[in-house]
Design a protein around this nucleic acid. Structure first.
Lengths: 176, 176
DNA sequence: AGTGAAACTTTGGCACT
DNA sequence: AGTGCCAAAGTTTCACT
C-alpha cells in the first residue's frame, strides 16, 4: 500500500469565534421537513450546486430552495459552508489519533483541556468520550517529527495529562 | 455537563464517485504559493466569502482570486466544497468512536473491510491505523439503540472482525 | 409557493508588467 | 508565466402575485 495517508484536510475548525455570532443559533430541533432533508442531502456534499439544479432534483423552484437554505443557515441547521483542502497540498502528510487520559476529570479540568486543544492548530477534531480514554484527538501534522513536537508542546507539559496513546493513520476512507 | 454530543455533521463523505472524476485529480504537490495559502486560509472556513473580499484581504484582484481557486479545484488542492450540517437537526444525536480489530490483516482483507465501511451510511470517517486497533471508525447514529443495530449489522456478522471497542462521544470541540 | 426584475458574483477576453 | 480591467453570463436576492 502506498504511503498515501490523509485524504481530506480537516473541517474548517471554527475559525474565529466572530464567525459564529453567539446569539445567532437556535435549537435546531425538527424544523426540517422532507424537502429540507432532500435538499441537504445534495447540498451537503457540494455547495457549488446551483439552487436551480437542486430544485429540479427535489421538485421545487430555485427560489424555494434558496429560501429553505437561508432558513436552515439562520436556524443553525447548516452550521458552515467550508472547503475540504488536500492536507498533502499544505504539507500536512501525517494524521494521528490520540487517546488522552486525564488525571483529574472534574468539569473545570475538562473544560480547560478542551479549551487548550481548541487553541491548537494541529488538533482538527477533539472528542470527549466515555471508555478507555477521556479524550480522543485527531491531529494533523507535517510528519512524525512534527507530531513529537506537538506532544512536547501540548500534552507532555500539561500536568493534568496522565498518559496518551497514539495511533498513526496509514490510510483513511472518505466513508460514504 | 448537558447531554450535548456531536456539534457537526460529518464531512460530506465522498458521495457518488461521479462527483470526483477519476482522471481529474493531479498530484497536488507544492504548486501552492504564499498567496494561495492565504486565500485557502480564508476560503476554507467559509466558501460563501466573495472573491472580492478575499482579494482585498490578501492584496489581489477578485479575478486573480477566482483564477487561483479554480486552479486549486482542478489540481485537487481543493477536494470539495461542502456544508456542515447539525447532526441534531437530522436526528443524529449520538457519535461513537469504534476501534476495530481484524482477525486477518492481509491487504485484500483490509481493502474488503474498508470497502464495506465505505458503503455504510453511519460511518462518517474510517481510519486504517497502527497501534492498538486496526481501524478507527467515527460512527454517527440516532441513539444508542441505533448504534447497537449498527454493530449487529456491520461488525458482529463480519467473520474477520475479531473484536471492537466503543467510546461514546459526550461532547466534541470544533477544535480551532 | 411561484414569477419577475434588480443586485450580486463568477467567467470570459484583451492589454499590460 | 501571472495580473488587472471591463463586459457577458450566470446565480442569488428581493420585491410582488
Amino acid at each position: 500500500m502506498p504511503a498515501a495517508n490523509a485524504r481530506f484536510c480537516p473541517p474548517p475548525a471554527m475559525p474565529h469565534r466572530a464567525a459564529a455570532p453567539a446569539g445567532a443559533r437556535k435549537a435546531a430541533t425538527h424544523l426540517v421537513d422532507a424537502f429540507d432533508r432532500r435538499i441537504l442531502e445534495l447540498y451537503r456534499q457540494n455547495t457549488r450546486l446551483a439552487a436551480d439544479a437542486i430544485g429540479e432534483a427535489v421538485g421545487l423552484s430555485a427560489t424555494a430552495v434558496q429560501r429553505r437554505l437561508k432558513r436552515m443557515r439562520e436556524h443553525g441547521v447548516i452550521r458552515a459552508e467550508v472547503a475540504l483542502v488536500s492536507p498533502a497540498a499544505l504539507g500536512l502528510d501525517t494524521t494521528c489519533i490520540v487517546g488522552v487520559d486525564l488525571e483529574r476529570e472534574g468539569p473545570e479540568a475538562l473544560d480547560r483541556f478542551r479549551a487548550r486543544m481548541a487553541r491548537c492548530r494541529q488538533v482538527t477534531q477533539c472528542y470527549y468520550v466515555t471508555g478507555a480514554s477521556d479524550f480522543v484527538l485527531i491531529v494533523q501534522v507535517e510528519n512524525m517529527n512534527a507530531f513529537v513536537d506537538f506532544t512536547r508542546e501540548w500534552l507532555t507539559p500539561d500536568e493534568n495529562v496522565l498518559a496518551f496513546t497514539t495511533q498513526v493513520v496509514m490510510d483513511r476512507a472518505p466513508a460514504g
